[in-house]
């Protein structure tokens, strides 16, 4: 059972100075599932996402991705920090999409997508380019391959960013409020790409305020507030029939 879990987070704690942002988060998802994290800003959902690929180092708990402890190694009773090289290898298997896209502005869309496969996975340039063109077609941007990010709209940039993450053939995709920085009319294209990705069987964890997307695509929805998981379950349970007052208040406010 446990090896079928893609993410297995056990009582994760994270503090910034004296401010405890995550107060023991326990969450797991199976391969192929889509999990949506909902919650008011400051609830710790983005921080939790960043802990999964070790962009933030956790202060307590254990976090396993595909059965592998992230950022650390267990030997006997003690745990040891991994070397940067080993952490980089773990990260290369987890894709991440950022709120502010974070495309490399000095590279074209195509170059953005092939950079890591060539530099990290050591794939030949021809092969990487071929895959990249397929991925750009998949996100509907075949004709923008030679454009720089500054020449693309926000929605187009975010779709290039998704293609860039997919080019590493990740086993898990993390989305950190992927549509929050977009003009309303551009949100749909990005959500369409994510929906298709979910249908193709990709395991995804999505921090979002798009309730409609969560209801339609998520297998499970988790509502977080003030560093704890308040409620979790299927979309119909959490979104349409919330049990906790805080969940009810939040759902009402964003709908």
């Amino acid at each position: 059972m446990s090896q079928k879990l893609m993410l297995d987070a056990r009582s994760i704690r994270k503090s910034f100075g004296s401010n405890e942002v995550l107060k023991g988060i326990t969450l797991s998802i199976k391969k192929g599932q889509v999990l949506c994290l909902l919650g008011p800003s400051g609830s710790g959902k983005s921080t939790f996402l960043r802990c999964i690929n070790h962009l933030e180092t956790i202060n307590g708990g254990r976090l396993y991705v595909d059965g592998e402890l992230m950022g650390f190694e267990e030997r006997g009773d003690a745990i040891y920090e991994l070397k940067p090289k080993e952490v980089a290898l773990q990260r290369s298997e987890i894709g991440m999409v950022f709120q502010r896209f974070n495309l490399f502005p000095h590279l074209t869309a195509l170059q953005n997508v092939i950079e890591a496969p060539i530099g990290v996975l050591k794939i030949s340039k021809d092969e990487a380019t071929k895959t990249a063109r397929e991925l750009l077609a998949q996100v509907g941007l075949s004709d923008k391959a030679d454009h720089y990010p500054s020449q693309l709209s926000g929605g187009q940039q975010q779709r290039v960013a998704i293609a860039r993450a997919l080019a590493m053939k990740p086993k898990l995709m993390l989305f950190d409020e992927p549509t929050s920085a977009l003009d309303p009319e551009l949100v749909g294209d990005v959500l369409d790409v994510m929906r298709k990705l979910a249908d193709s069987g990709m395991t995804m964890i999505v921090v979002t305020h798009e309730i409609g997307f969560a209801r339609e695509v998520a297998d499970r929805v988790v509502f977080m507030d003030a560093g704890v998981v308040v409620e979790e379950g299927t979309p119909s349970q959490v979104i349409d029939n919330p049990q906790h007052e805080r969940t009810k208040a939040f759902i009402t406010s964003v709908l």
């Binding site: 987890i94 950022f98 490399f104 890591a116 960013a161 993450a165």
Partner: peptide, 13 residues
């Protein structure tokens, strides 16, 4: 954000 994007793609420093 550039460094974070690079990290998330498995690039070393």
């Amino acid at each position: 954000g550039q460094g974070e994007a690079a990290k998330s793609l498995g690039m070393n420093s």
